[in-house]
Write a protein that binds this DNA or RNA. Structure first.
Lengths: 340, 340
DNA sequence: CTCGCGTCTGGAAGCGCTTGCAGCGGCGTT
DNA sequence: AACGCCGCTGCAAGCGCTTCCAGACGCGAG
């Protein structure tokens, strides 16, 4: 394996100068810089970040902690973060918490503490006090996405606002009999998120003078499967059916669409459905949604962290609201005459 | 930050002994071992893999290279590998190649060469000669999943065989008018896979004495969206419709189901559909499929690599065939009388 | 009692880099 | 002409570990 020493030799420079030339830090004459660069290129030399990090304290590596890798939002964030990091020459270490509590525990007690990362992105994690402490004990910049993270910088969307925006879209079309599929109030991963979105829904309904019927608010986990089951129940049990369903996520909206089709309900004629996310499948299904640009959130998190890293690893806790856009497709329409 | 030195001091031992005690290598008396362990625990000491790897050459980190993070197969492999690595105390560095050729290039020329990983898992990558060389130039064990990888160990499924098995399932139900949705013959990521599966399909058809109609073989990328469009075309254009569709992946089968519903075709009454994969959505949609246990493949890859790592970083190239299971659900049935 | 061997331990030499420090010229200033 | 300053360079000291080596010790065998 070729090391910096070989490069120095070949370039006729000292190791120190080569290091400075290649890293861009410190003063190096253009001549030497060029010599170092070309020698490195000829030898196919790539610095060992291990050694580099030992000496400098910078690992050029960012940890990304996600609750799962399957749900759309997480994989979109991973994708956005991954591309941004690659661009910057950073590695991405993935910590997939998963369902196993032992895994979760070891991520916080062992993995993150190995001084292997310069910064951490935590996605939609509801952390215990102890976990939070361990996170902060790393003394590394942290960015939270999709949920509160006390003491860290966070990127979020205006959950209440978009829920209202979504509901208003349906109200604006003339719907009054609107059901809502919300998330479980599980306090393990999904925070108050279900609650805030539900709050926005209820607020919009109230403002419009529409009654919120408790039996039309059903909850599911944030998956297609879960919402499918919940929606079936909703559509089956109601003596009277809603004319529109606002689901708290696109995956839940998709589950709803699938369930609706089982009942022979045409969309949007018999039932309008909308979600929140900007899921890739939205296009195929013609799903009206509010795009929250998860990829962009991932990329923004990376930019924020990279800024903090060059800024001496300090990151002022701040709260950034990411913009969202209403995407109207064909799953929502004016309710059929007579159903209102 | 507490280092091994602090632990040594607290335990009343030398740094060398503590290192041996904690790593389990070399002879250490039970007493000393216990002293070291408890001192480490009290101080919350966790070795720095950076330093450790510099000194020992073992990074305790595995690189996982995937073409994308969205498609079901890849995320399932990630999940399986991630859990297995976590279990073993290894970090997982994710290299998401993505669509950007520049990213792809830098992964091979820079990232993988940083001597940061002990081993590499490459998922469904069609590599150029140069990329292959760079991979091997790392002198690290490599396992390929879901596609050939010359010179490396691979884990794969019997693509021809399962395509035949799937086709035979449909034939066995009495279908003869069977269409096939295959992958594009793109030689960038998906190898001969579309071809081999199509081959299995054709072989089974021929063996059964059923004609393979060229207009009933359509291709799409391996996504729901792509197959949706392809299936619409298939179902719209045929003067005569097939009674069953065998899609080369579950995502494509799902796209087909969505398309079929657009045409008012009931599944399985009007159209039987089956796929290959074991996609999570299969349950909701009642999709008959051949489960290839992608998670298991990811975990197996990790076990293989870990074995090689303890074995002095040597891995004999070998080809492991992963088992698959036919999962019959409700998307396939005997063809309606009169349609045959 | 001595020897040999096996077990256990600590000292110290790195692993491949970064960076503080000091030295060296060249240049503009007074 | 002397001075100071600045841009550039190389030396060398680590970063936090692992591991080779040699020494100390205990014990059974001769």
């Amino acid at each position: 394996m070729t090391g910096i020493k070989d490069v120095a030799e070949r370039a006729g420079l000292s190791v120190a100068t080569v290091s400075r030339a290649l890293s861009g830090k410190g003063n190096v004459s253009p001549t030497s810089r060029e010599k170092a660069r070309s020698a490195a290129a000829e030898l196919g030399f790539v610095v060992s970040y291990h050694a580099s990090s030992l000496a400098s304290g910078r690992t050029h590596n960012v940890g990304l902690v996600v609750p799962s890798v399957h749900r759309w939002f997480y994989s979109a964030v991973i994708e956005g973060a991954s591309a941004a990091l690659l661009e910057a020459g950073y590695d991405l270490t993935l910590y997939n918490i998963g369902e196993n509590p032992a895994h979760r525990h070891s991520v916080f007690t062992d993995f993150l503490l190995r001084k292997r990362v310069d910064a951490v992105i935590a996605v939609s994690l509801e952390l215990s006090e102890a976990e939070l402490q361990q996170l902060h004990a790393m003394h590394r910049p942290i960015v939270g996405i999709g949920g509160p993270l006390p003491g860290a910088s966070t990127i979020r969307i205006d959950d209440t606002g978009i829920a209202r925006k979504a509901t208003n879209h349906l109200l604006g079309l003339g719907h009054t009999k609107i059901a809502h599929i919300t998330g479980h109030d599980a306090y393990d991963q999904d925070f108050q998120l279900p609650g805030t979105r539900r709050g926005g829904f209820e607020k919009a309904m109230n403002d419009a003078g529409c009654p919120v019927r408790p039996e039309w608010i059903v909850s599911a986990d944030f998956t297609i499967e879960g919402a499918y089951a919940a929606a079936r129940q909703l559509l089956a049990s109601s003596p009277e059916r809603p004319t529109a369903v606002f689901a708290a996520s696109d995956e839940m909206a998709i589950g709803t669409i699938l369930a609706a089709r089982d009942f022979g309900l045409r969309i949007p004629d018999d039932l309008s459905v909308m979600g929140i996310d900007g899921h890739d499948l939205g296009n195929v299904l013609g799903l009206t949604t509010i795009d929250q640009d998860a990829k962009g959130q991932g990329a923004l998190a990376v930019r924020t962290l990279l800024g903090a890293i060059t800024n001496g690893l300090v990151l002022e806790p701040a709260d950034t609201e990411h913009p969202t856009t209403l995407v109207v497709r064909t799953s929502t329409a004016v309710p059929r005459a007579g159903t209102t």
